[in-house]
Nucleic acid binder design. Structure first.
Lengths: 230, 230
DNA sequence: ACTCCAATTCAACGAGTGTTGAATTGTGCC
DNA sequence: GGCACAATTCAACACTCGTTGAATTGGAGT
């Protein structure tokens, strides 16, 4: 005698799950467990649907990762390209500081993606590395151009390598976002948010002194931050 | 009729596999697949033994990771502590540069461990985070002390935060080791090794100008590197 | 009222995982 | 020679994983 089918509800749910919600869930789970560690079942559980549904909207786990990449990196890149336009009247120093702010604004509350992207670049499985390079490297090129503008206009020292300097500026900002919130409370008892703001300002001061032709000139665009009292 | 046992060789092999060899294999596999992605079977295959043998030498996969951590980070920490001794007659600038060299020497060919440690700090599963903090943070404290020496002796600007500055110096060196070999060939066609050496020197110049009271003073201890011709 | 399709679920497959307990055997000691 | 023990392997357990094919159903269009 065959067991009677439990007859649970199949078919469409009253509340549809659209791909964006799946990406939200994926982002959250990737953030905690990493690309390898995150399971489609966990993502589905978080989105409130069946794992199989993911395959209705995305071709595979990796395709979902690429969609996620587009969604988060896209806006950053276009905003960066805007800032690096050579007709912008603001000083190069100020625009470099604004670049720090762009990364902070778009990726500040996005630990997972930062780690994933970095991890995949380092580990570098050819395929994923390529898909990241296509999206990230144009932005780096634009920042390099901005630095060259700074050199031509005499704001930045001539012995400055645009490539390395771009790398220093961007990578350190991302390192601050990634690590300071975890390390600062442990090492100094400072709350994470405050520590990040202080670190960013300290970093930019150091960075600018390192490449400027007039390092002692004031940087009026840098914000004042209330120092924490111990 | 029961199938006859294949009667392969059990018991000790002629060539013993000591724990260190297991750690070598683990390091290699962790480097490629990450902490989650690496399987004990893959490690055992590389070490030329059975997965079960790992449990004879280590309590678990995680215990093996901690042993690996000790083996690679231990020497770095002791060497760092030596350099930061306040009785060292060399200038603070030179000793900070030597710190860069120490990280390079010990971790330069050790991509896996760097990524793992960083990843675990960021992701921060309480247990592993603690086990890393205990090993890594004392070294950071020592470097902070060295920077305070520099401030007292007038080599380093007074508005320098020892904590953040330590973070900047160390993290950037590790970022160079991690990312430049992958990114430089793609972005500039420069071979990885050369790019790393150039980046380290460029970084230290920028860093030192950012914190020094006399930023224009020459740094005779910096090596000359043949520039690549395009 | 009927049809059709998009959205969803179920159930399963095969592969790979960390881990364990028992079995095996070479080596050195008495 | 006999014995204890350390080092090693085998076989299995109970999971979890990504993925797929078939089944199901609510709602839109006619």
């Amino acid at each position: 005698m065959p067991i009677p089918p439990p007859a649970r509800s199949r078919g469409p749910k009253p509340t549809r799950v659209d791909p964006d919600q799946l990406l939200d869930a994926a982002q959250a789970v990737f953030a905690i467990d990493g690309l390898q560690g995150a399971s489609l079942r966990a993502i589905a559980r978080r989105a409130g649907c069946d794992p199989a549904l993911i395959y209705y909207h995305f071709a595979s786990k990796e395709a979902m990762f690429e969609a996620l990449l587009d969604r988060t990196i896209g806006p950053v890149v276009t905003e960066l390209l805007g800032l690096c336009d050579s007709r912008d009247p603001r000083s190069v120093a100020e625009r470099l500081w604004l670049i720090v702010g762009i990364y902070h604004a778009h990726l500040g509350s996005n630990v997972g993606m930062r780690g994933l992207v970095r991890g995949e670049i380092v580990r570098g499985g050819e395929a994923i590395q390529e898909s990241i390079a296509k999206r990230v490297f144009p932005a780096l090129g634009a920042i390099g151009q901005l630095i060259r503008q700074g050199i031509e206009q005499g704001e930045i020292r001539e012995d400055t390598s645009p490539l390395f300097t771009t790398f220093f500026l961007v990578r350190m900002e991302l390192e601050i976002l990634d690590l300071i919130p975890v390390m600062a409370p442990r090492l100094s008892g400072m709350p994470g948010d405050l520590a990040v703001a202080l670190a960013e300002r300290a970093w930019f001061r150091l960075f600018w002194r390192g490449i400027a032709t007039r390092p002692e000139e004031a940087l009026p665009f840098l914000p004042d931050i209330e120092e924490a009292r111990p």
